[in-house]
Design a protein around this nucleic acid. Sequence first.
RNA 1: GGAGGGGUUCCCGAGUGGUUAAAGGGAGCAGACUGUAAAUCUGCCGGCGGAGCCUACGGAGGUUCAAAUCCUCCCCCCUCCA
Length: 429
Amino acid sequence: MDVVKSVYDIFSERGFIEQVTDEELVKDLLARESVTCYIGFDPTATSLHIGSLVPIMALSHMQRAGHKPIALVGGGTALIGDPSGKTAMRQILTRDEIDRNAESLRMQLSRYIDFEDNKALLLNNADWLAGLNYIEFLRDVGRHFSVNRMLAAESYRIRMETGLNFIEFNYMLLQSYDFSYLCKHHDCAIQMGGNDQWGNIVAGVDLTRRLEGKRVYGITFPLLVTSQGHKMGKTEKGTVWLDPDLTTPYEYFQYWINTEDDDVERFLALFTYLPVEEIGAVTKLADSEINMAKAVLAFETTKITHGEDEAIGAWKASVGAFNLRPVSSNLFPSSSIPRHEILQDVSAITTYEKTMKEVETVSIATLLHEVELCASRGEARRLITQGGAYINGRQITSIDYKIGVDDLDENREISLRKGKKKYTRIKVV
RNA sequence: GGAGGGGUUCCCGAGUGGUUAAAGGGAGCAGACUGUAAAUCUGCCGGCGGAGCCUACGGAGGUUCAAAUCCUCCCCCCUCCA
């Protein structure tokens, strides 16, 4: 088979697809011509996080296959917010905030998608939603929606039990309108999104047919949870962001290398560009050998999000801190992960600069708190009591421990560790 | 608008005057075991220099020696009726 793979094949072999509105037609369309497709993103935060990575990678694959992705910022819906105040899920944002978030969104997405020369678009639905006239909207759009059918949608059925306000109920109409608008003005033919968007996407397909007389399609991705059933991208320190100022590349790397065994293969397919043939080798890895695959996963994902230099830095720090074994040369030949032994270089680990006085005069618990290893001094004290605090690899046995010059290494640095995995360094200046 | 039910610590959820920083579960953290995995077991799990103090049970007042628990007003959610 030397037929070029279509992006649909790529999606399907990499596990991107949960549901498709019309598999045969979508397959055919994507194999035949360059298609414009879109995914919506919430502009409620200044940074995207790991939870958005599947949609982002999907858009990226689309573009690589010669299609045209549109990243749609949901500025219009953010303008409405959720007035009940009970759920914090939709914050009301001002136009300024939305525009600012949209801009940082563009910068982040630029790592994965090329927006040059209109090869991809970043649009904001506030541009067409904000000026909508209610009467006209009801007449032109609202009349196409059957409340009975809406209530049958999975997403609403669930909310019927806990309560659903009118604004939320309207998101389906607005999102459907987005789709038909993008179809009309940008010739957009496919909407993609998490499987929770299925109802909204299908509604948009229907509306577009009625409004524009055009046939459009929808694809949903599986909602990712780890094999433990945990939500993706949450750690002790909170969300794993894509912004290096919020989550350092080292922490990002660490998040991925800590992936559970059962998720490694799936994640390699979803979050890296490595060929599926190479990824399949994961299943043959015995016992701890799978850690090599995790290293590759961590390296490749970090490289995609933060660049190769940062990925190498994070990898080196990881090697230094955890005695990571080099990845065998026969594994993942497409990966650019370094495979040689290296000198210890932990500079990618977060380092705090402090004066000798600042270090000597405070209690060790305070210090652990100050370098954000512990959320409070109380937690730090507990940690020490339970034997989970280490200084330069030595367990701290007393909460009265005081740091002195003897704790400095030749670079005037101190290594602090919480448990087995959380490292921080202090540079005494 | 009327009637009833409800808002508890990160989440779910007990608790109807003091013994409640508040049962239980989940999540999380640490220790042991390991492979920076999972499972399991053990401990911890509001803040503050430990006995003490502060903050906390939707919001604001009030009763009381003492309130998450009683009273008043307000906000929000749910159910039924309109």
